[in-house]
Amino acid sequence: MINYELVHALCTAKGISGDETAVRSLILNEIKDYADWRVDALGNILVHKKGKSPAKARLMLSAHMDEVGLMVTDITADGFLKFDEVGGIDRRVLPGKAVTVGKNHIPGVIGVKPIHLCKGEEAQSIPAYSEMYIDIGADSQEQATEVVGYGDSVCYDAPFLQNEYSLNAKAIDDRFGCYVMIELIKSDLEYDADFAFVVQQEVKGLKDGKYTVAVSTQGGGGQSKYELFIIGDNGEKKTAPITDNGWNKWQTVEIKDVIVKNGKATIGVEMQANAGNWGSMDNFEFYLQQ
């Protein structure tokens, strides 16, 4: 039986990339009594669950906590909020939508020019991000900044709808994955297993140019796959292997001369670890080369 109450709580929790605190708290509250866990520097929840017996191979299951959304980038003199996307969103879904802004979940709507006043092509065209705005009902920048601020996260304010056959909600991607892992952690497992509730970050709005991405690591090594990666706007992936060789022996792995065009790149570390592997990462860097 699916615990829809928990799925509902997970999907309606607000947690766009880089602002996953509410989702993390919800998950920790569910799993804390069932397994060993820790939260790493990026905010990932790493969980080790003991099974009835140790496993020969070490298995990690991973689901991401964050969802796509928007971020407040400016507040106009008239009190409207300008925004940009966090994660990949098709702009066609935005006009006319209800949203919530910031920690206090201030309700707002994404306005659109009345169809009656649109001329010709305008009636079918979806405005660019630079033309879109959120209306929270503020009459001035001053009134708006009393309740929201630059950098505030913006989430869809979408209903949670279910029938006998389907579920319709925001952030099913990937809160349902989180839900499945929570249920596994709460259940009796045959073998030891590891779970990662991860955060993701998509970097956008970058100046075109050559970039360096780097990360510092230390650990016991021995993972079957452990690499730093970057995916550019064209989808091309560059990787650099990470080989740890001992406790506190920090080393830095970097990828240089990454060409960024169209302002977008995804960076991360991918690992396939075996039983007994350990280590940590710190000091993630991503910068434009001079």
């Binding site: 098709d90 066609r92 879904v93 006009p95 006319g96 939508k97 659109v112 009345p114 169809i115 009656h116 009636a123 079918q124 065209s125 979806i126 979408a158 209903p159 709808l161 319709n168």
Partner: peptide
């Protein structure tokens, strides 16, 4: 006069 621009992903 429904506005086609606000229909995508609308409940």
């Amino acid at each position: 006069g429904v506005d086609a621009r606000v229909l995508q992903d609308t409940v």
